[in-house]
Design a protein around this nucleic acid. Structure first.
Lengths: 201, 201
DNA sequence: TATTTAATTAGATGAATATTAAATTAGACG
DNA sequence: CGTCTAATTTAATATTCATCTAATTAAATA
């Protein structure tokens, strides 16, 4: 039921500490210790909030040594209420508050997602048109964790959650450099991904 | 501080019963008893939730005899996250989910509000251009309760919360038929208000 | 291997809040 | 005035949830 999803999304944003975390992450990735220190809470509290934000797909995580760096999942933040968006980004990007009419491609992106995905997030069909296909691929790949390694089995299961033809979509990911494969292990290619993302704007 | 505002907005939507209330109201206005019956809760519970939704400006109220009819404050709902919007409106308007690119005037409306209002909701200046002025007036007047009578003192204080020149704005409200005055008592003119609203689309 | 550092888990505490029953208020109307 | 109806308030209860401390896990490294 979608009700829970919407409620949980708003619950994730219905706490001042979590909003502050997002505001801090808008300036760049941070690990748990630093977040705890900046916010005057214990690391355990950060773990707690990170779990809620992760469930709502609002943040991503990247592990380096035994430190976990949190960062915003821009994709989901961008598609949220503009009031929230303004508050989160205003410190790092003041023009955001100024006159900024959603451009044509932002609209295209929204309409493609509305058209090609069902209410519960399944992909109805793979767009033939390149630009639309890239939008769809970006949408799906943004749900994966940055920096994490996935086995082929994991990737297949993940993609199958969107569309039965996981082999084609996995191939598209590689072809368009959204991810790369290193002897059986798949990983996101964040630079390429956001580069294509910017291309679309 | 705007943090509280954003948090409270999300708190208002972070409860399944309140989302259900909004979904029901999307089909038309309802009074407390009927809402309680449809949702299987007591009228006291509806009163409780209505207060929260009212604080977040998500609903309006209209009194007829001793019955209070609740309705959506479309203005605030529209400017919320599209996921929420879809869930709320989908039952009454299925095309909403389909390809629907925000039209030019929706964009104008958003940009005028971003330009002419400060972060904490004050009006920076009164637009000279008619269309923009109507957008600003609509925005302010949508915060008033439908059907409620206001004294001139109340109206002045309300408008002063947005801009010091309350006299000019009050006059504009009357001129453009957003409200009417009946021997010292001011009241919204809902039909006219939404008629102009539709004109803007 | 022992130590250090970061993160998580588990359990406890306290605050916020959703809900209800019962009492009260506010209008409408005979 | 008395009665009916709708809404609100109050007080009580139960649940959720933010936060902490203390213990534990995990990885890196000396």
């Amino acid at each position: 039921m979608q009700l829970d999803k919407v409620v949980n999304y708003h619950k994730a944003l219905a706490d001042p500490t979590r909003i502050k975390i997002l505001i801090l992450l808008a300036e760049g990735e941070l690990n748990g210790q630093v977040l705890a220190e900046k916010l005057g809470v214990t690391p355990a509290t950060i773990t707690h909030h990170a779990a809620k934000l992760r469930e709502a797909s609002l943040i991503k995580e990247r592990r380096d040594k035994n430190t976990i760096y949190f960062s915003l999942n821009h994709y989901f933040i961008k598609n949220s209420a503009s009031a929230t968006e303004n508050l989160i980004y205003q410190r790092v990007n003041p023009e955001h508050t100024a006159e900024r009419i959603p451009d044509a491609d932002q609209q295209l992106r929204e309409s493609v997602i509305k058209n090609f995905f069902t209410q519960d997030g399944k992909l109805k069909s793979i767009p033939a048109q390149l630009k639309k296909k890239l939008i769809v691929l970006t949408h799906i790949v943004s749900m994966l964790e940055n920096g994490r390694k996935y086995s082929e089995k994991e990737i297949n299961e993940f993609i199958a959650g969107f569309h039965e033809d996981f082999a084609t979509i996995r191939r598209e990911f590689i072809m368009h450099h959204f991810m790369y494969r290193d002897n059986g292990v798949y990983e996101l290619n964040p630079q390429e991904m956001w580069a294509r993302w910017e291309d679309l704007k």
